[in-house]
Design a protein around this nucleic acid. Structure first.
Lengths: 169, 169
DNA sequence: CGATCTATCTATAACTC
DNA sequence: TGAGTTATAGATAGATC
């Protein structure tokens, strides 16, 4: 059965016991490979099943890896909201403060982002941005904008707009 | 090679394409199985490599599943500390968390206020403004905007834009 | 390190009960 | 539905470069 062991380039992978890998170098290699695999599985789960996954991984050497589909912070936010809803008064104060702190931070981040967005929008440079950078939602909103704008346009303006859209190139 | 197909109890698993599973029941089944598999892999990674993993999963029907080794909140907290600029990530006292929570709340309030101000300042989103209020220069600039925008629009978007401008009323 | 290889092990798609 | 079965697809341990 293994008479030709001598010509095998590799023994293939052996069954391993699930316990901490002793040798640090091996542990690091295995971590890299399996972390990759884990993220791949997570992304497949998202695509196949329309699920949302957020994952935070600290390596043996405490390096940070994240995965988030569609967006890690959004999902963590949902998680925090969902869990704080239930366990309002029965969690320990420590955990409770942790949660509320996290929540506040997340909201802070989100508010900052909104602020940045608004300020950006008002830089009056929006028309120079490539639409390639727009998300679906942004595009939808953009279409809505165009539509509403139209109702505000007077006749001459509309004509000129049409011209521009139609003519060059 | 497959002469005894008729006695196979199962065809085994077929290669599948990674795209959203159409049939909802299949999607749910696949979700359950793969979610289990994902959590198992995560736990193996933790044990084998001494890693820390936190995972939050929302099913297609938005049911929540969590995984955390050693503890999901601890890890998420580390993640938040790591990704935010706060430097003292190893404080752990109750008072410290409380202080930071209050601090975050204050910042949150301030950010919200700024946001409100900015939005107020620009109150009307531009597309809701009547063009009656625009100066000649603004109108010229607006036309230039439309023109430049057009060069950035892809075909489908342009069509939809034209539709909107053309259709109603 | 990190990429590649390959024999094996493991996860799982389709099926049955 | 949920749990079990089977054969195949996919992940990966150990080696090599």
């Amino acid at each position: 059965m293994n008479m030709d062991n001598q010509r095998k380039k590799s023994v293939g992978h052996k069954k391993i016991e699930i316990k901490k890998i002793d040798k640090a170098s091996n542990r690091q290699v295995t971590f890299s490979k399996r972390r990759q695999g884990l993220f791949k599985k997570a992304s497949e789960l998202c695509v196949l099943c329309d699920a949302h996954v957020a994952m935070v991984v600290f390596s043996p050497s405490d390096k940070l890896f994240c995965f988030g589909q569609p967006n890690i912070d959004t999902i963590l936010n949902s998680y925090i909201n969902e869990t704080t809803e239930f366990e309002d008064s029965k969690t320990s104060s420590y955990e409770e403060y942790n949660r509320r702190y996290e929540e506040a931070l997340k909201m802070l981040e989100s508010e900052k982002k909104k602020l940045a967005d608004v300020q950006n929008l008002n830089k009056s440079d929006w028309w120079n941005d490539s639409i390639d950078d727009m998300s679906i939602e942004e595009l939808e909103q953009f279409m809505e904008s165009i539509k509403e704008l139209k109702t505000n346009l007077n006749e001459p303006m509309l004509c000129r707009t049409m011209e521009f859209l139609d003519l060059d190139e």
